[in-house]
């Protein structure tokens, strides 16, 4: 039980470091650590498939893509554009207002029942695969079309066009 609170503290700490660090490369590295703590959360929820997918897709693919673009564009601390302190202060105030509003609306729930894993096997790969290929077969195939479209779009956008429009 206390493992959850420790990992949640680490997640919040590294998420804060992500958005407040000046250097973009450090920011990406802190985001990788944040995603690792999310993987630990999935393991604690016994969602093993999601933990592995989060580890591979987010920490492996997406973060490498971010780091690659960041280094391709040669960004570092000197080229980092900064907002003025007044705008930063007002943004933090606005975010805190959002948090207070959300937390206040959750007080209505007051169903503070602890999570009991009624069915601890639902997160395993075999059970999720059965659900994915029986009930959610059509969305699964459509998501493959979505990924294909995104791939074609990314290549089309990033391609260096010799005959400029």
């Amino acid at each position: 039980m206390s493992v959850f609170y420790f990992v949640a503290f680490l997640s919040i700490f590294f998420a804060l470091m992500t958005i407040f660090t000046k250097n973009p490369v450090h920011s990406v590295l802190y985001l990788v650590i944040t995603f690792f703590t999310f993987t630990v959360h999935y393991i604690l929820l016994n969602a093993q498939f999601l933990a592995v997918v989060n580890f591979i897709v987010y920490m492996g693919a997406i973060m490498v893509l971010f780091l690659f673009v960041l280094m391709l564009l040669n960004l570092n601390k000197d080229t980092e554009p900064l907002k003025s302190n007044l705008v930063k202060f007002m943004s933090v105030i606005a975010g805190m207002c959002l948090l207070v509003t959300l937390a206040g609306s959750f007080r209505v729930l007051e169903s503070s029942e602890p999570i009991v894993l009624k069915n601890p096997d639902i997160g395993l790969v075999s059970n999720l695969g059965k659900v994915l290929f029986s009930d959610f077969l059509l969305p699964f195939e459509i998501s493959s079309i979505l990924l294909l479209t995104a791939m074609v779009g990314a290549v089309l956008l990033a391609k260096n066009d010799p005959k400029k429009i």
């Binding site: 039980m1 493992v3 959850f4 609170y5 949640a8 393991i43 604690l44 929820l45 016994n46 959750f106 729930l109 169903s111 503070s112 029942e113 602890p114 999570i115 009991v116 894993l117 601890p120």
Partner: peptide, 12 residues
């Protein structure tokens, strides 16, 4: 692991 997560309220 299953024992560990038992007891964290959903609100948290």
């Amino acid at each position: 692991i299953v024992q560990n997560i038992q007891g964290v309220p959903l609100n948290h």
